[in-house]
Amino acid sequence: MSESLFFSTTLWFSILRGLQITILLTVLSMAFGLILGTALALVRVYGSALASSVAATYIFVFRGIPLLILLYFLYYGAPQISFLRTGLLWDVLFSSAFGTCILAFSLNNAAYLAEAVRGGILTVKKGQIEAGFAIGLTTRKVISRITLPIAMRNCLSQIGNETIFTIKASSIASIVTVRDLLGQAQYVGNIYYDNITPLLAAAILYLVLVQIVERLIRWADRALKPAPLAGAKGKRPNQLQVVS
């Protein structure tokens, strides 16, 4: 490792550019993954038997394929299919390495997030859902206004874990020439004939980024769970009380 390179502004300037790409990859693929994942979770829980098993199959498949193979498959394999080489899909997704990465990461995230959200939905208390029906809300409103918001809070820490996983996993974008944090570090390493120093610098930034995200998640978790001032107590045996 070379100290002069480690303390040079050129190195830090260029890997900070890479950090931006890493953050962009993470945010976009988490957002798309969350949308698709939530839809899958809803189908899994409320869909017909057929729809539910289709969603389950999706989840199984995309959790089973290593992300790198999925990325290769989409980046190198998909362009072989002729209809993918035309139109908007090609322009937006398959023509660029960045677009293909977003697609691959989103598809992968959706599978994991679907399981997380499903778990969140299943832990919503039955009574809270019934209370929605009891005041006359429609099924759609009960799901969108009660079940899902509570479910999302329930699985917030899992969404956080998934975000951290995505930050790390997004580094494989560098393999298909995207200049994310790792990609940029390798690029700088090639220029200066020093592979190690930029990698160490990138490692520090990954550490910092993950720490920040972990803290944000913990803060959000606490902010969304109001501290009990005085707790409700469990059920007591039948008590006889005379009304005063």
Binding site: K168, I172, L182, N195, I196, L199, L200, Y206, L207
Partner: peptide
């Protein structure tokens, strides 16, 4: 804390290049 935060790929490169040097 450190190894939970680092990408696997980065670790692989670090070890690989580190050993090489």
């Amino acid at each position: 804390a450190i190894f939970r935060s680092l990408p696997e790929l980065l670790c692989i490169f670090l070890v690989y290049y580190g050993c090489e040097i």
